[in-house]
Design a protein around this nucleic acid. Sequence first.
DNA 1: GTTGTCGGGACAAAAACGATCCCTCGGGGG
DNA 2: CCCCCGAGGGATCGTTTTTGTCCCGACAAC
Lengths: 345, 345
Amino acid sequence: MNLIQVLHQIAPEILGIIEQRYAVLRVVYYKAPIGRRALAQELHLPERLIRNELEFLVDSGFVVKSSSGAALSAGGERILLQLSEYIRQMRGLSDLEQELGCRLNLKAVIIVPGNADHDPIVKQDLAKATARYLRRCIKDGDILAVSGGTTLAEVAKSFGQNGVQRNIMVVPARGGLGEDVELQANTIAARLAQGLGGSYRLLHAPDNVEPHLVDTILQEPSIREVVSLCRRAHVLLHGIGTAEEMARRRGLHDDHVMQLIVNGAVGEAFGYYFNDLGEVVYSTASVGIRMEDLAKIPLIVGVGGGKSKAWALLSVIRLGYCDVCITDEGAARKVIQILKSREEM
Amino acid sequence: MNLIQVLHQIAPEILGIIEQRYAVLRVVYYKAPIGRRALAQELHLPERLIRNELEFLVDSGFVVKSSSGAALSAGGERILLQLSEYIRQMRGLSDLEQELGCRLNLKAVIIVPGNADHDPIVKQDLAKATARYLRRCIKDGDILAVSGGTTLAEVAKSFGQNGVQRNIMVVPARGGLGEDVELQANTIAARLAQGLGGSYRLLHAPDNVEPHLVDTILQEPSIREVVSLCRRAHVLLHGIGTAEEMARRRGLHDDHVMQLIVNGAVGEAFGYYFNDLGEVVYSTASVGIRMEDLAKIPLIVGVGGGKSKAWALLSVIRLGYCDVCITDEGAARKVIQILKSREEM
DNA sequence: GTTGTCGGGACAAAAACGATCCCTCGGGGG
DNA sequence: CCCCCGAGGGATCGTTTTTGTCCCGACAAC
């Protein structure tokens, strides 16, 4: 029995204290400089309590205050990092990771605390965790294929700049999709390449294309080349989204979206829509990576958080083409719950 | 940086909570069944607080209440054991053990939390730790020699009964001394033998004997045999006392005692009185083990707690004939302090 | 039977908390 | 250049929780 378990039993109230203090630190870190009131609103805690916490943190030297609000000191950032590891343990996330990995046959699972549906900061944590993982597993000479979406955009943002030039090629795994340039695979590929100190290619093609045009488009040499790189990727990083979200981003009509949902579509990946058993219920023609290419990619990393994405995660993982899953506590617990309820049936 | 250090920084108040809860558990364990008021008095805490603590502990199932007071449940004893290890870590006793071991060239150091001078329960903890250590290191066929004193009496008491018969011989390392039968080496040897499941011999001789009579007494076969066993002991366990305490127990006159103290005597072992540098300043003739026999004993364990015994401990250890030291936090910190102040000089 | 201590109930004092105020100040936008 | 917003700090005040104390009936030991 380790210290955390003992504490759980002998002094359960302190875990709340720690989590609260951790929550404050974390928000200050991500939102610095931030004032008491904003902090209180963010954390749904009374302002006075925030004041006490801040006072303590300032006295301890973890937080510095300026006229524009509170920010973490260097020591604060250090302690936050340390603390986050123990928070994971406290919530039993290490165990949860093991359980998920075992049940779903994954090479690795990384779970960050919280629920991205309710707390936007969790998405940033997720992104940071993904960035850390990527930095660790990408080797020189690798080709990294990336998809789009808000989560991966966050990953790219959290990457920062890496001065060291490395021989890494980042390619978008899908074409252009929807409106927001920040969420495009192209944009993300470029950002990630910067962050990793590598180079990148752009895929100048729409993702959503008339089936009979796919072959024509692929004859265009610049597109062909990128797609071919993509299919030889060593690592594929893709954001996992709900079917509905993806269908809307693709600009499908409302009734078409409804149709998908009625058919049980919960997840989407590279133009294929799955039900929660991992069966394809609909597919759109797609420039970029295709299902049959996935088998050849040594490492596929799926990223997605929030309880609402649990079914999507499950469906994508069930496909068997996901080796590493990076998600959050909300989604992970829901997935486990779904799996357990299925066992009982 | 481990969890405890992180907690120290991020939430120092919780260490207090833990220590307090631990203190309650410990007292309940040693004084069961005990009531709120007695508990409050013992711990110097307000009664109401004790009530809250007890309520929590009862709800958690660690404590059971009867009409005669509170007592630990099986789960409570388990958690207390677990907790004590972490308390050691919290107070940095593991580090302290290492430091002492290193500075004084000891094979092993065991330090229990607290100060036996102020809190009698610490002596019981010390005894329990000693018992645990003995159980671990005594092998079949060993001869164990023991001295007397209050601390060792406590060790014997805490040993309990061990049903398993083993081939272990316990012999007293010194003769009879003073009045109280409970503190005699003979009594303790007998008790320890029972606890260890071994056999014992008694040394029917006074410890304090006229010098010219020593040889005569040693001619008595029953005495000779025990002393000879003693000198071939594999393990020697001796309680460390202050020179003054031992001199008084030996029944020396007040002015003689004063003389000793003026001469710098701070520690005593087997009839020899040392100053704090480990030099012999006085010796009485002694039946039983002698200084020159110590070198031949493979494992010498010294036990003693309380800040007041720091100098005695230091003097005995400085002799070089102590391999393992079992003491408490109060004494250990004082010893370190003494050593450091000497370095500065 | 007396006595001491047990747990539990009750209650006032005190402290902590929570929700708002107000004031001052600095920086960015008009 | 000035104004205004949001920052921190301090203060108020009713409410809730915690704390300190006392008392009571019960049980066990003497």
